[in-house]
Write a protein that binds this DNA or RNA. Structure first.
Lengths: 181, 181
DNA sequence: CTCAATGCAAAGCGTTTGCAAGTCG
DNA sequence: CGACTTGCAAACGCTTTGCATTGAG
């Protein structure tokens, strides 16, 4: 029983994701009025796309599931709720979302692309090379220095990618406890 | 006539790479004595591999060619000098080199992996999204802040990837000159 | 001689695409 | 209805691998 494993946590449990299956809750206007959350339908329309059940489902999972995920993760979770949906649909929709910056797509190494809902503030990642846990951070000072570097070379900075790799406290402890020598 | 195009420069010319075809120059001991450059043979032996003509050729190109290259680049240049060499050999050897950190391998996006001879000092990259030019830079202050961030989260930093994207002065000028409106 | 290294072609991976059938608006 | 979407499977681009042959030590 595959279910979207959050790459940003050790996910000891395989709980099948508490994604509300309902297309849309009953309390609509009030929710929007309070500015709580833009409905999935609206987002899909903003993309200039037709509203289909598969897109609603994918979007629901993208927004309510773990914050970092691969296309495969989404596909598996989607399949649980609607086995008829193909991965091409997942890929196509994720591409639409990333093209219009609703999700950010990071393709590192030979591994599958990692996506994340982009509505949140910009941040970079600190990844544990042992358990794959991902910690998000933001550091304005680094950003400022990046601008400075670019300026030094006469570049107009448009984007950047900063990924830190290391061993998290838990894994370090674990490694120390199991010294293989 | 394919020849290793340097992704780190606009490469207006397609000059077939001034890589010395000689396996090894005649002046050997003196060169090493002056600490000028470790011979390719020695490097291959340090890798624990057998010295073959294909490896010597690949290594020669890796070390004397443009600083940033793809496996395909290397393969094409190699082919010019010895069409019998297959890309599997190139890939295999590049992997050996990167495993032992003689070259660094960066796999971004869906595009082919980019390699670079790693004997030089650590640095990061500033890439022009328009002409693909790559500028290397180092900024100890950023490095220091990275360490600090990692420490804040209790991580032991082992590595990082920092890539800045922007438009270089030349391309900006070009773009300004051709305003499509 | 013997094991490592090679070239070839085929397989592998994540992703994309062509197309007929199905659906939204 | 008609254009947009879908699922399927086949194609894709880059990389890796299996295997018989070749070559280094």
């Amino acid at each position: 029983m595959p279910s979207l494993k959050d790459s940003s946590a050790q996910s000891h449990a395989h709980n099948p994701l508490p994604v509300s299956s309902q297309q849309e809750p009953l309390i609509r206007s009030s929710r929007r009025a309070r500015g709580e959350k833009v409905p999935n339908k609206k987002i899909i329309r903003e993309l200039g796309l037709k509203v289909t059940t598969q897109r609603l489902l994918i979007l629901e999972i993208v927004r309510n599931g773990p914050s970092h995920f691969t296309a495969q993760d989404i596909f598996e979770t989607v399949s649980e709720q609607n086995p008829a949906i193909g991965f091409a649909t997942v890929y196509r929709f994720l591409r639409s979302l990333s093209e219009q910056e609703y999700v950010t797509e990071v393709r590192m190494g030979g591994m599958p692309a990692r996506y994340e809902w982009a509505a949140k503030r910009h941040h970079d990642h600190l990844t544990c090379t042992s358990c794959r846990k991902i910690v998000e951070f933001e550091n304005p000072e680094i950003e400022r220095l990046q601008d400075k570097v670019a300026k030094e070379f006469g570049f107009t900075l448009t984007d950047h990618l900063l990924e830190l790799y290391g061993v998290c406290p838990e894994c370090r402890r674990k490694d120390d406890a199991t010294p293989r020598a």
